[in-house]
Design a protein around this nucleic acid. Sequence first.
DNA 1: GACTCATGTTACCATTGGTTACATTCTCTC
DNA 2: GAGAGAATGTAACCAATGGTAACATGAGTC
Lengths: 215, 215
Amino acid sequence: MAEAKRKQADYHHGRLAETLMALAVKRIAREGAPAFTLRELAAEAGVTHAATYRHFASREALLAAIAAAGYRELREREEAAQRVAGDDPWARLLVLPETYLAFMADAPGTFHVMLGHRWADDDTYAEARAARAESYALLEATAVECQNAGVLPEGDPARLIAAMLGVTHGLASLWLSGQLGVVAGGAEMNGLVRETVRASFEAFRASDGILWGSA
Amino acid sequence: MAEAKRKQADYHHGRLAETLMALAVKRIAREGAPAFTLRELAAEAGVTHAATYRHFASREALLAAIAAAGYRELREREEAAQRVAGDDPWARLLVLPETYLAFMADAPGTFHVMLGHRWADDDTYAEARAARAESYALLEATAVECQNAGVLPEGDPARLIAAMLGVTHGLASLWLSGQLGVVAGGAEMNGLVRETVRASFEAFRASDGILWGSA
DNA sequence: GACTCATGTTACCATTGGTTACATTCTCTC
DNA sequence: GAGAGAATGTAACCAATGGTAACATGAGTC
């Protein structure tokens, strides 16, 4: 705020890139889908739409930058949460979906972009893809930690990881798109999601063997 | 095919609505996102883009129609599968995600639209929303069947249903957007998804109590 | 054969993402 | 502190897009 005021009325905006990303995220959180217009966004930032191209190669690149930043922040939050969680591998695992869901609640707009369907295959999303892969890798690594510590059974953890990724992502996605009201009135959705994800993880762990059957 | 040829070169197309929906689905399956252009679509159907507005109020309405038809077909497939499954409530439950995933594999383009993030709130998607709600209701009803038959514990099944919906939807969504390669090489994804979903359901069932804890 | 309704066409519009040439400001060097 | 050059913004322009309106054509009905 204070720093934003420094050069408010100047010819040069100062922090156009961040401003645009923030405005885009705000709009997406409000409207539910990345349906914003580059021109509206630029106008809201007090700038011509052509100015945006000094900072992002395209509209898509703006989205990619938001997604990449989102996954980077998610990763940071996850690591911080694991640091707090201490040495218990299972606690370190459980903390991941919790962080994921907390971040989603904090930044639904960013999440909409992060979960956006099928990013273009070109370089635009390369950074976002890498950041996302790192986040997934952390889940996998922690699951292996659990195996090594004897908290989870030995064997190929592919199914387990897929299942964990699936519930978390699935419930997040359903919640984000407002589809969970159908299944439970709509009250305190966030609580239901968190409890369900946590309970699912416990169920996966308790179901010794089922998720490790012959593939 | 045969019937499509009947009036091929005529002024009136004959089945423009179905043709447009089919072409759109094909494009979406290929390109991964509903990024098609009404004009390209119309051209591919051998028609001016303005002609599409005789059948769909807007581009969005086309998508809504695809989604609605998709959920209707899903529901039909689910009911048919349950008929085949017979009387065992658990079998009738397990058949639902299997049908879901099989449909997704058959019609990825349609699924992309069905799972599309946050539909507009206006009437455009009213029918699609209703069809989707019916599909969810079937899962809920079958879960209650299982409770009544003693196959699943008593109590509020909200978490269980959310969990089942979550894994299924989540893995489908991850598979559709090509994100599962990260977690397991990429070979036979479809198999991994189906096995994981099934195993998850079994885990939920086996984990007596965990998913029914105090909400 | 004329009337009518459904369906398609042509011509048009405002808006959008994107590009290019020019203007302004910041910064760094001498 | 003057001036060069990089960064950043503006104005004008473009082709393509979703959408609309007026007109044309076809099929079915009496």
